[in-house]
Design a protein around this nucleic acid. Structure first.
Length: 271
DNA sequence: ATGGTTGGGGGCCAA
């Protein structure tokens, strides 16, 4: 079970908004056995570090961890088969939220996980503090990206579906938080701030529709297929040519007791 | 236009 990367000539990184790590142990175990990643990045673990199921992951071969948790809300975790160094996190927007952690992989790249604020229901920063927070968070990421000069991989639930091919209906969602023009233009600005390569679109270009999230509220999520691509994996421009394969594991959304997000998978050749 | 579901934690809030 345990082995050292790289194995098939690539390194597999997964980003998955798990919507409570403790509610999802069976799905996680099945996923790890089916997809065999080297690094699993979880968002919305909804657990403090003292109740995080460390032994569960260790038993599955994930002995190296970088966790930032808080009670009830948010929380991110990077779980790895390989050693992680330089574990750091930052308090974005000075809110004290657990929304980010970064690590250095053995091959030298940095890996940053983000859980961007969802932003509430009303897309107006003047009347909705949560939307204001989301915009401020994205702006802070832009400033940070401009100063980032190391080869990096950025993953997470960014809570923005940037293009019309990332939503089931561009028209229906133009005024819905996650796809409003102010958010999608900030997302574009964020990509340009480090020349980030959207790894998923790099391999599956427009106009193919791609979604990573489907609401729990649909009678039949797969049949109605009103999805949005909120979860992303980006890489620094110098790593763009190293991308081997990507997949959004849509079938996982159909498992028993699922998260409302599907895992996003990147296979990359890291030297 | 509305309401639909889930998780955490013990209220309803956030998504």
């Amino acid at each position: 079970m345990s082995r050292n990367p790289p194995r098939k000539g690539h390194f597999r990184i997964v980003s998955w908004n798990i919507n409570s790590v403790r509610a999802r142990l069976e799905s996680i175990e099945k996923f790890l056995k089916d997809y065999d990643p080297d690094v699993l990045c979880l968002q919305e673990i909804k657990a403090t570090e003292d109740v995080f199921p460390l032994q569960f992951f260790e038993d599955l071969g994930f002995k190296h961890t970088a966790i930032r948790g808080q009670k009830s809300y948010h929380g991110v975790a990077t779980l790895a088969r390989c050693p992680l160094s330089k574990i750091q996190s930052r308090d974005w927007c000075g809110k004290g939220d657990a929304r980010h952690v970064s690590v250095r992989l053995p091959m030298g790249s940095l890996l940053h996980i983000f859980y961007v604020p969802a932003g509430g229901d009303i897309p107006d920063p003047k009347t909705n503090d949560k939307f204001e927070h989301k915009l401020a968070f994205l702006n802070e990421m832009i400033t940070w990206s401009k100063k980032l000069h190391q080869p990096s991989i950025l993953v997470g639930d960014l809570n923005v579906a940037p293009t019309e091919w990332d939503v089931w209906s561009h028209k229906a969602l133009l005024n819905v938080v996650s796809h409003t023009p102010v958010e999608t233009s900030l997302m574009l600005e964020l990509q340009q701030a480090h020349n980030w390569v959207d790894a998923v679109r790099h391999m599956k270009p427009e106009p193919e529709k791609l979604y990573s999230w489907w609401s729990y509220r649909a009678r039949d999520w797969a049949e109605s297929n009103r999805g949005r691509r909120l979860d992303h994996i980006w890489v620094s421009p110098e790593l763009g040519a190293s991308i081997q394969n990507v997949e959004i594991a849509t079938r996982v959304r159909g498992w028993e007791k699922p998260s409302d997000h599907a895992p996003v998978i990147l296979d990359i050749k890291l030297s």
